[in-house]
Design a protein around this nucleic acid. Structure first.
Lengths: 352, 352
DNA sequence: TTTCAACACGAAAACGTTATCGTAGATTTA
DNA sequence: TAAATCTACGATAACGTTTTCGTGTTGAAA
């Protein structure tokens, strides 16, 4: 095991001062060509690379981004991370990820752990529990410490910072409209409880689409999935709620606010004897593996997670590298486009 | 924006020396209770937290683990990461992830970027390209620098380090045996090319299982999927290869070395008029979302990715914290158990 | 009274960098 | 020849910690 060479070691070996070595390697004009050549050769030979930690301490910049998400075993979040990584890496930044597991406490701990010098800025999608508790002190504090935050997906109006979102309301309207255009008369929605903002907004879009088409809103057609605390039978719990919902309502189309709800509803519908899409149509949200490989392949709205990720990284890095305090305080919230990917759970509009 | 307090600032404010503040906060007995109290109160008031970077520099330990994987948009890898995070976090470590995108160059860059002080050790699953090139100099070099590596999933015999693997051969044997026990006479395998070690090993297990049951090996039943360089139509490419394979062979069971191959094969089989599992049975590898929500739900072998992840983190952290050089050099390779999760693409053994 | 611990604290070094400033000797300018 | 200017380098401080080693007061022991 060979120990990593440092400036000091090189300096001693070459019998010059540390400053000379540093300057030579940075091609300072204070150093003669002769000395530069000697130092460079030696550095190359021993594979010298400057120590990142020392640089971070000196520059007060770590060149790393902290990403805090509720869950990593989730296609949407991984596409976002992938987008962040791409952009960050190609701009000389590293990415360190923290998982909140939807827990407020873990979110706070992660934030604080990373805020003590480990990272230059955060990209974050807050935990459900944080949403429910409405306790945002940790976010305020890190911003107050001068660490910029970019929020995505689950964003908070109360926090003033850059944000990356999809236009949930408009997208949801678009999805429901698609269903209506394809001949659906009784469109239901499977959504989350209202404290999850994306759920609330998508429900709103659903309502708006109905109004726009002069369809009376039937509250029974809105299924808000209750969270289950026991993750083991989460899925079972979900299924029974949906089956119950399907049995007690006459529905010919469903808009589900995420992939899992859509897939599970399709399974339930099949078991109840519906055929898809003839008897009942489906549109999901988030274009993940599940949608693509579902049976039949699910028509869904694509959130373009990768684009969201790289947008987030871009915004954050721009802010970090803007000549501090110059043109700041004008926080942007960029809304990324969504598309409906038509697959086989919806009828063609002209077939209706 | 309030700037973060440092020892120096606290010291000045309280009119004591930096050392006194440091000692007081670390509860040194050199400091009087009175002073300790004063310092603690002040530190608490201003929410003092020691700067991680400075600590890292001083201690030559960063308390962070570098994880390098080929792809993050992949269920297996995310479960592994999740296991790593869990264990690491609860032991005071952070995790910084690097994506190689299956590219040798990106793997090398990521490794070097992180090896310069940013992390204490690596957990890595090498890129396909690295496997194909058989160029491991970057791995040797980081080990040579005294940075420990734990390899998982795709491991290399040539590298001497801790390893986490599943027993691919045995598991594959078990899966094929299951198919045979359920009455299959003509079992095929859909696998990767041989340079991907997991593919090679699983193929080997397949062959062994046939031998064990005195079934003649028909080379035509082994489909090795060729990699496609154009990621856009990767899926299409896969489908045509599989359909072709199904058309030209008489097969009543398929063992696929990953989820995607299995799902795609099921789709192809359905399109060719097979019914599952009556006409053709399927077993996949890796228990991901796809398997669980496939139609019909796919019988598959579970790799327990989360367990692999936490095992990897445990091995790495143990090595990092073992009183250096004392009991080292005895590298372990732990093999984690696999299970076959029976769902609806296989017949019951007694139905045969 | 002298001597000596014990006590409570401060100074300084170290981790690996970079940047500012100083300066000895060589060279040019007046 | 004296003065000014380069040239090429070294010393030092600084980033925020922790730790080792002093050291000036006490109070107690001799």
């Amino acid at each position: 095991m060979r120990q990593k060479p440092t400036l000091k070691i090189i300096a001693k070996e070459l019998d010059v001062s540390v400053s000379t070595v540093s300057k030579a390697l940075r091609d300072s004009k204070e150093i003669s060509d002769e000395t530069k050549e000697k130092v460079r050769a030696f550095a190359k030979l021993y594979n010298y690379k400057p120590n990142n930690i020392a640089l971070s301490l000196k520059n007060k910049k770590t060149k790393t981004l902290g990403v805090i998400i509720p869950e990593i075993v989730h296609h949407f979040f991984t596409t976002v991370i992938s987008g962040i990584e791409d952009y960050a890496n190609s701009h000389g930044y590293n990415v360190i990820v923290g998982l909140s597991n939807e827990s407020f406490d873990k979110e706070v701990i992660n934030l604080e752990m990373l805020a003590n010098g480990s990272i230059d800025g955060f990209i974050i999608s807050v935990a459900k529990e944080t949403l429910a508790l409405k306790d945002y002190h940790h976010l305020f504090e890190t911003i107050d410490q001068g660490i910029p935050i970019v929020m995505f997906d689950r964003v908070l109006d109360e926090i003033i910072c850059d944000k990356i979102v999809v236009d949930d309301i408009a997208t949801s309207r678009k999805a429901v409209q698609k269903l209506i255009d394809s001949g659906a008369k009784k469109v239901g929605i499977i959504t989350t409880e209202d404290y999850v903002s994306v759920g609330r907004l998508r429900t709103k879009g659903y309502v708006e689409a109905l109004q726009f088409n002069n369809i009376n809103l039937d509250e029974n057609l809105i299924l808000k999935i209750e969270d289950n605390n026991k993750p083991q039978d989460e899925l079972l719990h979900l299924e029974t709620q949906i089956k119950n919902y399907l049995k007690h309502n006459e529905i010919d189309a469903i808009f589900a606010v995420n992939e899992l709800y859509a897939i599970t509803a399709m399974k339930a519908a099949r078991e109840l004897g519906y055929s898809i899409p003839q008897d009942i149509q489906f549109v999901g949200f988030t274009d993940g593996v599940l949608s693509k490989h579902a049976f039949p392949p699910l028509t869904t709205v694509s959130q373009h997670g990768k684009a969201m990720g790289s947008q987030a990284a871009k915004l954050l890095i721009n802010r970090l590298e803007s000549t501090d305090e110059t043109e700041d305080e004008n926080y942007k919230t960029v809304v990324v486009e969504t598309d409906i990917i038509e697959r086989e759970t919806t009828l063609n509009s002209n077939e209706s």
